[in-house]
Amino acid sequence: MTLLATIVIAGAITFGLRLSFILLWGRVAVPIWFQRALRYVPPAVLTAIIVPELATWQDRLDLSPANPQLAAGLAAALVAWRTRSIPLTLAVGMAVLLGLRLVTG
């Protein structure tokens, strides 16, 4: 698969996912169990991406305080919880990471 073909297919899939229910609403009966399970897709998938990402420091898993991404991630989570603001979460998380890296060298 060429890179262009990959991008086009990935784009078509993304568009299809976004269009899915908008197009099918009222035309197709969706089973209740499926609708229920769908509700937990975002917290499950996104957290499964976030946690290993935060825990990976200098190309290996590091759950010690020497990994500044853990503190930065926690600070960002706190800001996200309190403010629900995406820009503020990004700013605080990045500031804590850069600050800790300065302190620890």
Partner: peptide, 13 residues
């Protein structure tokens, strides 16, 4: 690091 931060901003609230 913007990648996990963005996801945190979306999922935590």
């Amino acid at each position: 690091f913007f990648l996990p931060l963005t996801f945190i901003a979306l999922v935590v609230p």
